[in-house]
Each structure stands twice: as structure tokens, then as C-alpha cells.
Amino acid sequence: MPVEYTERGMLKYTKKLIERFKNPKNVGEIENPTVVATEGDPTCGDMFKMFLKIENGRIEDVKFLSFGCAANIATGDMTADLIKGKTVEEAGKLQIKEIADGLGGLPAIKMHCATLAYRTLKKALTKYKQKQAGGAQARPKG
């Protein structure tokens, strides 16, 4: 690159992202969720809390709370849309790229937002599986 452009110079959001940020459909909490997962840290400036309602192995509802930038809110909302109605197994196959693509792309320095949403989802699904396994083990013992 003959002239290096700064990351700041490349910080632009897509219309899709701004629209999601303005009107996120999936923010909030779920009462009696099947599983809740939190990732990130407010000291780093971004944090997600994801609530999943799972019935018969299918994600019936997703809500999230966000402390973070516009990309944080938009990626959370996108992730929720991408997994809603899917089975736990299908949701487990979600890729970070799909989240970014769903928003028409993310600036390079905001990719960590998609990663954080992805990690929160992974954590929630792992917790769910542990719960299931724990439940399955508990039953014969009980």
C-alpha cells in the first residue's frame, strides 16, 4: 500500500447496520429463560447478555442486552435473528462471517463485536448442553 489509510478513516457503518442499531428487534430479557450467558467486560467497553428459550431442542426465542457500540447492538440483534427458530445443533454451526454479512459487512476494527456475539452464543449453547447432560445424568440417579 503506497499510502496507508488509517483505521479511523475506514470506520463507516452500513445502512443495514445503522437500521438494526436504531430499531433492534431482539433487545430485552426473557422471563424464565432456558439459559442465560454473559460475555465481555464493561471495562473493555463491550458486553452481551443473551437469553435463550429452548424447547425440544429448538430455539424458540432469543433476547439480548448490550453494553457497547452501535456495532455491538447490531451484531447482537443480527445473531438473534440468525438463530431464532433453529435447532441447537443448527445454531451451533453459525459462523462469525454470517453475522457480519447479515449487516452488509463490518469495519475491520468492529469485527470483534461479531466475535463477541458469537462467543456469547457459544457459551449459551454449551451451558444448555451441560444442563441437558446434567439433567440426563441426574434422572437415572434420582
Binding site: 445503522i18 436504531k22 453494553f67 457500540c69 455491538n72
Partner: peptide, 13 residues
């Protein structure tokens, strides 16, 4: 309890 960039964007809107 909130993050500045989201605030900036909402104020901009």
C-alpha cells in the same frame, strides 16, 4: 451503564 459510541449514534440520529 452505557457506552459512548451508541450514545453518539443516537444523538446523531
Amino acid at each position: 451503564g452505557l457506552e459512548g459510541e451508541s450514545m453518539l449514534m443516537h444523538l446523531d440520529l
